[in-house]
Nucleic acid binder design. Structure first.
Lengths: 225, 225
DNA sequence: CGTTCAGTTTGTACGCTGTTCAGACTGAAC
DNA sequence: GTTCAGTCTGAACAGCGTACAAACTGAACG
């Protein structure tokens, strides 16, 4: 019986930990983009040999999962506050907050959809959604299904949005991104894709908060009992 | 004026082309997973030096975009047929078909959300969706927004679904994947996440065709004028 | 026919990646 | 004071994306 003190650190130094590794990874992700978030990059960021990380994570994928879960938690708690608002408003707030938070780490959005949502923070977020949907009057089964619907929409939207952003830099403002999309749509052939060309103005704005909210509202309309 | 014949091949051999490169990439993706879809892998698959590919694509990202677009086209055309069914049925069919098609290439789903949907096949799919939604009675603006809503849901759902599948193998049947999820949910603490634990049975089935169709229906309910 | 020359493919090389293995160190516990 | 689990390092492997210069090919032109 050795580890009766569960937090004991028999090793030489407690320099590393799951915490500081995820911290460093997140720092690199924000500063230099997802490509910089390599094992070697994280290690040098921490002044440590690359192998040292393998004491705390079995492989890189595990690190990424941890980063994703941290990210979800970080921005989901921000929306846990106001409990007096009606359920629909609260889902609205949660979704908008989470989208904004994830977009603040442009390189991360792709990661979120690349790993199953099974970390502790993801579970907490799901639990919270179930709370709100139960309050909305949905029965247990429908609430569960609806929560997944909301998550899928949220993550899908953010991922598609982030796919057009250069992950190494702080994400340009919305109107700038819309303008760049507009330019892209101006190039589509009106002969081949008439409806697309006619709706180019709307499509350029797919990546806006307004479109996100519109879709979310249609979705909540569909859930309304 | 040299290239009056636009398809002339002045070079030594027409061994390569955009076509055969995408073909080879897709073959590797299906057979050995997305990690095998490397420049060097594709090159050796074609019996060619790795650099040769850079004559046809500026970098690897461009190859991936081409693969994604090919995939979208491949499985979208399959659903373009039946025009006599009501609009809602047709969107249903299109979405279900596309999901099934994309899941047939387990490694690809992550890629689809990683690149903006701006290839020619993606545009064609969008145009098609606009057709159906216009027929449904939505005005031009709403149709455009609705089409994006459907795309976001479809791709988000498939991506989350594919994130749990080993991409190097042909994707196990649905009930097997559900069972594996069920096992995962059995481990969550009922004390910490009571609602999640209570709904574990439903959540294990998040990745089923049934849940996909349920969400799609809620979404179409919200679009109904 | 011979030459030209754009377009295609190759050899070689650089710097980077994730990961493994054997070993060196550290410090709490006996 | 020794033991020994746990932590970290050095060195190395195989593979990656991609740039550069050179070699080859074959249609077009004189």
């Amino acid at each position: 019986m050795r580890q009766n003190a569960p937090t004991s650190k028999p090793g030489p130094r407690g320099i590393l930990s799951v915490q500081v590794i995820v911290d460093a990874a997140l720092r690199l992700l924000d500063d230099k983009g997802p490509d910089a978030m390599s094992m070697r990059g994280i290690a040098t960021e921490l002044g440590v040999a690359p192998n040292a990380l393998y004491t705390y994570f079995p492989d890189k994928a595990a690190v990424l999962r941890a980063v994703v879960d941290r990210l979800i938690g970080e921005h989901a708690v921000a929306a846990l506050a106001a409990t007096e608002r009606p359920w629909r408003q609260r889902i609205h707030d949660l979704a908008l907050e989470l989208r904004a938070g994830l977009l603040r780490h442009p390189g991360a959005a792709g990661l979120v959809l690349g790993a199953p949502m099974d970390g502790p923070q993801a579970l907490a977020l799901g639990e919270r959604l179930l709370d709100v949907l139960a309050e909305a009057g949905l029965d247990q089964d429908d609430a569960a299904r609806a929560s997944y619907l909301v998550i899928v929409y949220l993550l899908g939207f953010v991922a598609l949005e982030a796919a057009e952003v250069d992950p190494t830099r702080p994400a340009p403002p919305e109107d700038e991104r819309v303008a760049s999309r507009q330019a892209g749509f101006d190039a589509v052939s009106a002969a081949e894709y008439p409806r697309t060309a006619a709706s180019a103005g709307t499509m350029a704005r797919y990546i806006t908060t307004e479109q996100f909210a519109w879709g979310l509202d249609r979705l909540l309309d569909g859930l309304q009992p």
